[in-house]
Simulated scan of single mutants.
Amino acid sequence: MSTVRALLPLLLAASCKSPPDEAQHMPQADPLRGHAAIERVGCAACHRIPGVGWPQGATGPSLEGFSEQGLIAGRLPNRPDVLAAFVRDAPALLPGSAMPPMPLSDEEAHDVAAYLYASGER
């Protein structure tokens, strides 16, 4: 019993560990194209985004450290498929979202998601 008590804090700490980076690995997507798409559609007008110098929007949440966030918009699981769908058409996933649908193709949305995940590694 004393061994269990001694190991319990270690077990609890291990269970709270962040998911591995591979969970957000997107081999088909290109973060560099994602950065270009972010600049083209003006995401930084509302968000602070690593690697985008201007503008530095404050209407939406900062996307710095996005890869470490557990949830997208505080309600959706932070997974590549969900993030790509969200950046393309947030109101379709969260009706009433303040983020408008963005003029992105599916491929561009995946590239944007890859950029947001990779920008936390820089």
Rank of each mutant, 00 (worst) to 15 (best):
A23P: 00
L94V: 15
P77F: 01
A13L: 15
G96K: 02
L76M: 05
C46K: 07
L11T: 08
P20F: 00
A58C: 04
E107V: 11
M99S: 08
D21Y: 02
L71Y: 07
R122L: 11
C43P: 09
G65P: 06
F86Q: 00
R33I: 01
S62M: 02
G42L: 05
I49L: 09
P77C: 03
E107M: 04
P103F: 12
A36F: 00
I38L: 14
S62Q: 01
S2K: 15
P9F: 09
V4I: 14
G34F: 05
E22C: 08
A13P: 11
E64D: 13
A92N: 08
A114R: 11
A98V: 12
L10H: 07
K17L: 14
G65E: 07
G60M: 10
P55W: 02
D111L: 07
L32I: 08
A36W: 01
S119D: 03
H25S: 14
Q28M: 13
I72D: 04
P27Q: 10
M99R: 05
A6R: 15
P50I: 02
A45W: 03
V41T: 15
G65W: 08
L7S: 10
G34M: 09
R33C: 04
Q24T: 12
A23Q: 12
P101R: 15
E108F: 04
G51D: 06
P20G: 09
A85W: 01
R122H: 14
S62C: 08
L11R: 03
A37D: 09
S18W: 08
Q56I: 06
A92W: 00
S2E: 15
G42I: 01
G57I: 11
R48W: 02
L63W: 03
G65I: 04
P55K: 06
A84L: 08
D30P: 03
A85T: 09
S119F: 03
A109L: 08
A6Y: 10
P19W: 08
S62K: 00
V4D: 11
E22P: 01
N78A: 11
P101S: 13
F86S: 01
E68H: 15
A58K: 14
M1R: 14
P95L: 06
A45M: 09
G70E: 12
L32G: 03
S67G: 15
D111Q: 05
V87D: 08
C43G: 05
L7H: 07
R122V: 10
Q28C: 04
Y115Q: 04
D30K: 12
P19V: 12
P19S: 10
D30R: 13
H35L: 15
A45G: 12
Y115M: 05
